[in-house]
Design a protein around this nucleic acid. Sequence first.
DNA 1: TTGAAAGCGGTACCAT
DNA 2: ATGGTACCGCTTTCAA
Lengths: 340, 340
Amino acid sequence: MPDSTNPQNPPTPPTPPTSADVARLAGVSRATVSYVLNNAEAVRISEPTRRKVRAAAEELGYVPHAAARSLRAGHTRIVLLPTSHVPAGPLYSAFLNELQWALRRLDYTVVQYGSLGLTGDEAVRAWAELRPVAVISLGEIALSAHNVDTLKRAGARAVITLGPDRVPGAHALVMDQAEVGARAAAHLVERGRHRIGVVVPEEEGLTLFSAPRLAGARATPGAEVTPLDLAYTEESAAALAARWDGLGLDGVFAYNDEYAVLLVRALLDAGLRVPEDVAVVGADDLLIGRLVRPRLSSVRIEMPSGERLAGWVDRAVRVPSAIAERYDLLGATAVPRDST
Amino acid sequence: MPDSTNPQNPPTPPTPPTSADVARLAGVSRATVSYVLNNAEAVRISEPTRRKVRAAAEELGYVPHAAARSLRAGHTRIVLLPTSHVPAGPLYSAFLNELQWALRRLDYTVVQYGSLGLTGDEAVRAWAELRPVAVISLGEIALSAHNVDTLKRAGARAVITLGPDRVPGAHALVMDQAEVGARAAAHLVERGRHRIGVVVPEEEGLTLFSAPRLAGARATPGAEVTPLDLAYTEESAAALAARWDGLGLDGVFAYNDEYAVLLVRALLDAGLRVPEDVAVVGADDLLIGRLVRPRLSSVRIEMPSGERLAGWVDRAVRVPSAIAERYDLLGATAVPRDST
DNA sequence: TTGAAAGCGGTACCAT
DNA sequence: ATGGTACCGCTTTCAA
């Protein structure tokens, strides 16, 4: 295909246009370009000049270089949101989206950084290189005090971790998963079940959630708890159901609704009756729990609005000292249906 | 709580340590610091000097400044992965994780950028500011030729979009969702169903998937297709089921397994029999489809390994001209079970 | 109202 | 073997 206008046709201009290019095209200085494009208030620029600059920028397809800008500014507006490799449930990912949206409204750039396959120290170094103004580590990587220090030295004004264990120097987001386990167990006890199994997913990365949920169940009066390892496969569930009679359990807290549906299916297939032989309660109150039969009892988790959390983060960034060091986040209530 | 060592106790050192700080502490030049910390091969540095530099960096908790580095280098290793606000299914998020992991093994920094609430142009500008070396836009934002141009001018060596429609200048990742719809419809036709409803989720952001799935079903010989709007709520499903008789359908392709489970529940509750009165097929072959009764027929989608796609992206970045402009990605096969 | 110039942190060429 | 230094793109005083 001939190109009559430019036979050489370099497919891409070797370098992106800079503000100097814009200045040259508009016949002004780089300073003026900066003033115009950033709507600087401290300086008056004549309207004709503004037009020229805007037109030149448009023509060149100029986009400012974020790295250069933040280098000059001495800080970024990056909020780093490490993502774990866990296929997050719908509840959690909806929360993340909301948080992300709210942070952008506050003019932060949200960067989700997948840390899969990195050790904690490696991950933290990689995060620190980006000089984020805040790190919200909800995921699988548990931060040490030293890690928090590294991030702070790299300019992070707020480091937020998942509670309830406090990391020195970090703000704690107390999403108390233990409460979820406690509500589930209490609900089973109310139903007269005392020999309670608690499902612990074998999938990695869920420990941060499953461990406190188990602990919360254990701490519930009247509950005698047995942990039950379960992978999210039919085979694993069938194997568990096959040895059910030997377990001597009359109630199960199945980690969440997805695992609960899986387990209930296996139990029914093994000839057990739910809830007569064994009562099952999930968590997260997902739609799927209302679609199966028997309808699944659950524990509803009240997430804060992403907006509220974003506001808290923003305050922590602006006035690190003036903000509470922990932020309670979670309410949990049992939702009885037909499986208990 | 008194702090005897430092009553003033400035909570954070005002600025992160720089390579100049390291150089000063080690008693060497900045150049030497750079050589040592980057294991420069072209330059011989004595072992004692290396030690001093490493020790100083360690002591200060020095972490290089990514922005400064890439500013100097003239390019980044950022692969931008825009995320949509869609609660991605487990299939898709597993794929994303794999891709991300594989890209990091190739030494790219994967940045997921949530573009929720931005228009296409705004989003593209924001991405371009980060000067990514590649953009993999699988999500809800459809790129125009002009958008692709903006990204390319900003230094992106590869812009990858979701097929099958080609955007000039972009590499096309042909994840042909139409094929999914076609397989589902063909399967229903094989089962003797011809008056086929196709569920179109009302949730926003799914259009990029649902539209081609619908079109693929429409193009299937022997299928007379009726689109069915459905939100992912019990109410919406119940409303649809209530007017079912008037629709005169004997088969449904329910977008995916999650919507299928929802719809089947509503149909059963409305007194219809599945598959006798209406055959239902989902897609994605999720575990949930095997747990419900009747077991859900589905269309299995074969995703490529994230590693293969990552390799393709890497080649596109390194030799933009030498790489095929489209990359076929998807295989789809019907998985008959009890609902059809 | 606009321009010249310094400097953010890091790298790499050229000297020494 | 190591140091001096120019430069990447942008913002922001300070002068004119």
